[in-house]
């Protein structure tokens, strides 16, 4: 159990990076994890050419996995290419959280932030 809830993860959920609303943003979305009550609302500011993420702000409540994942992810994506983020999956999020695996029942918690960011980026692209 300590393997899952290791110190770094608990700290990541406690000190949520980029937590708060962005006033200046290009896209936003809110997602729910209907089965467990997790929720994240994300706002993203892109660089002027629209190809990179300049800043991210988010708010939300939920389990440690969803909140730690969102916090670490929000930090990771800043400065990254939109196309690289669109190619991310569960493996990369596990790496950000220093986890080797996750139970199928927690996969949606793990991916809530990433799918929401992708949703925003996709809407900006279309």
């Amino acid at each position: 159990m300590q393997d899952l809830y290791h110190q770094q993860l608990l700290e990541a959920a406690e000190n949520k990076k980029n937590f708060g609303e962005l006033a200046d943003f290009d896209g936003e979305a809110t997602s729910y994890n209907a089965s467990c009550g997790d929720t994240v609302s994300i706002r993203i500011k892109l660089t002027s050419n629209g190809k990179q993420i300049e800043s991210v702000g988010w708010t939300g409540t939920g389990c440690i996995i969803s909140q730690a994942a969102m916090g670490q992810l929000s930090d990771y994506v800043v400065g990254k290419q939109v196309s690289d983020i669109m190619a991310m999956g569960a493996g990369e999020i596990l790496e950000l959280l220093a986890l080797s695996k996750i139970a199928p029942g927690r996969l949606r918690c793990l991916l809530l932030g990433l799918t929401t960011i992708k949703k925003i980026l996709q809407e900006k692209n279309t």
């Binding site: 409540t61 996995i65 918690c109």
Partner: peptide, 13 residues
Amino acid sequence: GVHAHDVAQVLDS
């Protein structure tokens, strides 16, 4: 202070 999912995960262990 603990989300239900995290409670359940520990109980499962």
